[in-house]
Structures are given as structure tokens and as C-alpha cells.
Write a protein that binds this DNA or RNA. Structure first.
Lengths: 218, 218
DNA sequence: ACGACTTTGGATCGACGATCCAAACGTGCG
DNA sequence: CGCACGTTTGGATCGTCGATCCAAAGTCGT
């Protein structure tokens, strides 16, 4: 038997998670396979499974790492309302940069990442003066909105990987515009706005609607 | 060669979609495999692939069927506000009954199902008197909230398949309650409410928050 | 009744997640 | 200093999946 080369530096879970994150960012969820991981890390299956329980565990660890970086970020002292918008935008941007995080948050909501999000948003809503009983509902609604946007974003990103994003959105908009205005009056009219809307601005607009609704609970 | 038995009735796409829906409802997304489908329909791969392009196509068709049934349901003439709540609850219940729909809506938002949802919600918001420019943002926010809840629901259902749902929710609540109150004040307090909250009611509470926020746009 | 076209069943392929085990390593004890 | 034992690593292998392919079986027009 030929002597097998062997890595000298020890393979830590952090290194594996970092490599997994790279693969996910480059090619989406489909690109994260153990085969690709072994290639990138120049190792074998054994080394990876020694540090990681399974694929779910790996995805969860990568997600926790990304979200943790966002949530622990200090927000300069501002009004609770401004802080909430900042945190929400931070989440949006993180998910925009790592779209697979969005899908993962929905898939396994009991893992630490979503816990951190709940804590952060719940705390800011408390500071905003939302009364106790309504707090739970308000936080749930806000988090669900963020998760919904996150999921949509992940879907958009999955497209962009294949084709040009702008072109695809234009194609959808064209398709919407061509719909029968009698049967689909709203979507027909919305087509124009779909074509040149800004995801980030629309996300913030949603946050503002929500905050306005929260204000009525006070 | 032995003569091969052969089905006499023609295999239509509707029949395939119905069988797929049954499999999905019984065992979640993992249960929908072409092998299981061939067994249930007493047929082979060829017959199925003849009617269906691939697995995505099958999932999308099943989703469109479920959502179509909800969205086309007539709402007795009520105030736009009541109609919106009814439609939203209808969506919630449908996704509660078929949790895989929630995941699918996020995965491929450009397929007809979400289009129908947008149209319905957009139309009702128009009737509610939301002014034109804000309509697009409002509809987007509301749909995203529904999608977020749908995703969470799908995740919950994935658990319930494995273990008892009540017990699992209790376990999570216990875990939250045991968190350090200094570091996680909000989640720590929310644990009690998590244990005995009603998903359907909390969903409606979120809808009401959004509607209150939307009212400020008028 | 015969040939062209459609529908069907199952063999097969490549890729995946996961498991398993022996080779290579390193650490500490005699 | 050397040897034995636990740990870390690499890769062969398994079972299952979605997808492809093709010939047999059926259907229909002429």
C-alpha cells in the first residue's frame, strides 16, 4: 500500500464550519455536500464526521455563526424604534449575503440562532413600551415577518445563481403584466412596481407598517 | 419474458398529484419519493415522468391545488377587514393541514400558488382603502408575514411527525425557562406563554397588528 | 389487419448522506 | 528510549434517492 498523506494541522469544527459557509455562499445549499467538503479541506469523511454529527448539525452550526455575528453587534444608543430598524436591517443584510440562512431558520426554529433573534427583538420591543401581554404576540409577528422575507430572499438567491437576477425579475414582471387584468387586477397593476422595486426598502416599509401597528397596542 | 400486467385506466396528472398529496400529508416531504409513488399507484417510473417533469414540478402542482382550493373559496360579503381575516385564517388552516405547502411557497414563490395569494390579498387591501403607492408594500408585508408563519408551522409539523408535539413544545419551553434570566430576559419570560399559546390565535393577533399598521397608511 | 404513435414498467445510472474500519499519529508509561 | 493504547484521519462501501432510457403493451386511424 502506498503511504497516505495526512494533514498536520488539527481539523477543528470552526474550520469545517467556515469551509461549509464558503461552499454555501458560493453555490447555495445544493453545493454543500460532504464530498465537496472533503475536497476543499483535503481530507476524508471520517475527519468531518468526527467533528460534526450530520449535515443538519453542520447547517445549524453555520447558521448560528452567521446570526450570532449580527445579533451581538452593538447598536449605538438610539431610540428603541431606530434600534429595531437597525437590527432588522442587519438581519436582512446578513440573510441577503448568506441566503441559505433564511431557509435554515425556518427549517429548524428551535436552534440557538432564532432564540437570539427573539431575545433581541423582544428586548427592543420591551424598551419600546409594548405592554406585557401583547409583547409575545408582537415579537412573534415581527419575527415571522422577518422569516418570511428571509425565505423569499433565499428563493430569489437560488434563482440568481442560475440566471441573471435582474433579467429573471423582469421576466416575472412581464409575465404578471401579461395576465388578464380582469382576473388579476392587483397583480397586473403591481407588475410595474415589481420590476424596479428595492428589496431592502420594501423590507423596511414592512417593518414600519408593523411598528405602526405595534404603536396602537400601547 | 413473462407478460407484464398493465393498468387499464389512464393515469392522469390529477391522480398523480392526489397520490403525492396523500404521501406528503402522511409522512411529510421526505415521504414523497418516486418509489413510493410507483408503489401507491401500482405503476412504474415511466408513467409518472410522462405526466410530470420532475419532483419540483410535482410539488408545485400539489401546492397549486391546495392553495387554489383555499383562495377561490367564496367569502360571504363582509367588511374588507373581516374578509381579510377570513382569507388569512383559511391560508393558515390549509397550511396547518398540509404543512409541506408552507415550505414550498417559500421555495418557489414565482409559481401560480403565490400569485393567487397576492391577488387575493392585494384585492382585499384595495377594498380596505389602502392608497395606491402603499398598496404594494402593504401586500408584500402581509404576504411575507403569512409565509413566515407558514414556514414555522411546517417546521413544527416536521417535529410532530417524530414525537408528540405537546411534549416537544413543553421541552422547548422548559429549556427557555432554564435560560439565564440576565442574559435572556425576554425569552425567559416568554417561556410560560410559549407553553400554552394557541398558534391560530397568535397568527390572528399578528394579522391584527398588521391591519392596525396598515390603517395608519390611509 | 397492420403500422404509427402513445402510454407504461422497470433496469440502470450517477450522486448523495451516512457508516465503518484500518492506517497513521501522538502521548505517556515503563 | 520504545512500545502500547487511545485519538484522529482517509477512503471504501452501503442503501436510497431523482432521473434517464428503452422496449413491451396498448390504442387508434386507415
Amino acid at each position: 500500500m502506498a503511504p497516505r498523506p495526512r494533514r498536520t494541522d488539527e481539523l477543528s469544527k470552526d474550520v469545517i464550519v467556515a469551509a461549509a459557509t464558503e461552499l454555501l455562499d458560493e453555490g447555495g445549499e445544493a453545493a454543500l455536500t460532504f464530498r465537496a467538503l472533503t475536497t476543499r479541506l483535503s481530507t476524508g469523511y471520517g475527519a468531518i464526521y468526527h467533528r460534526v454529527a450530520n449535515k443538519s448539525d453542520l447547517l445549524a452550526a453555520a447558521t448560528d455563526a452567521v446570526i450570532g455575528r449580527v445579533v451581538t453587534g452593538a447598536v449605538p444608543d438610539a431610540s428603541p424604534r431606530e434600534a429595531l430598524r437597525t437590527v432588522a436591517l442587519g438581519l436582512f443584510d446578513a440573510i441577503d449575503e448568506h441566503p441559505w440562512v433564511g431557509a435554515q431558520l425556518s427549517r429548524e426554529p428551535w436552534r440557538p440562532a432564532l432564540l437570539e433573534i427573539y431575545e433581541r427583538i423582544g428586548g427592543l420591543l420591551t424598551a419600546l413600551g409594548v405592554p406585557g401581554p401583547a409583547l409575545f404576540d408582537a415579537a412573534g409577528a415581527l419575527v415571522n415577518y422577518v422569516l418570511g422575507v428571509a425565505g423569499q430572499n433565499a428563493a430569489n438567491a437560488r434563482l440568481s445563481a442560475e440566471a441573471d437576477r435582474e433579467a429573471f425579475l423582469g421576466a416575472i414582471a412581464g409575465q404578471w403584466a401579461r395576465l388578464d387584468p380582469e382576473r388579476y387586477p392587483f397583480v397586473h397593476r403591481a407588475a410595474a412596481q415589481l420590476r424596479d422595486h428595492d428589496d431592502r426598502e420594501q423590507f423596511l416599509a414592512g417593518i414600519d407598517i408593523f411598528l405602526a401597528g405595534i404603536a396602537t397596542l400601547r
